[in-house]
Amino acid sequence: MADLPVYTIDRIFNAPRAVVWRAWTDPQLLAQWYGPGVDTIIHRFDLRPGGEWRNEMRWGDKSDLSKMVFEEVTPPEKLVWRHSSVDAEWNVASNPMMPDWPRTLLATVTFKELEARTGVRLTMTPIDASDAEIACFANAMAGMDKGWGSGFTVLEELLATL
């Protein structure tokens, strides 16, 4: 398990922890920020272990569904959920465009009090994944973390020449 690839993002928010927690766990607030530049519709939000967050993102004429099943809800410190791509019936399914991308990632969010501010750390790692899914995610993460800092610059230069 220790070898599973992990995606991590840290951010400090300029608001007290209770407020940040509310923005993550009140679906009306969550829908306002979750998903970059898309319309987010939360079809179900049942904030308890085993409960589901059914999420739809719409942009243009496109729609993308994902299902989150909460594993741990510890206000105002920690949220853990299984983050899955789903078909139109909300069943976990691999995406036809990317069959080797992990169908389910375990997302863990921690909220740390930093005086009047809040430190948030989010990690995502494959769970119940096939070897192919783990390899695909690991390759993508290796690309992101190790050396792609400069690698990305090179690639962007290359792409600019297209």
Binding site: I9, N14, V19, V20, L122, M144
Partner: peptide, 28 residues
């Protein structure tokens, strides 16, 4: 181009969402 777009989008997803959360927290 496809692979870089994929990774860029994955990488941008939470970062860009967090920017939107920043803005929301300000109004809250």
């Amino acid at each position: 181009a496809d692979a870089v777009e994929w990774l860029t989008r994955f990488k941008a997803f939470w970062g860009d969402s967090f920017d939107q959360l920043d803005a929301l927290l300000l109004t809250m």
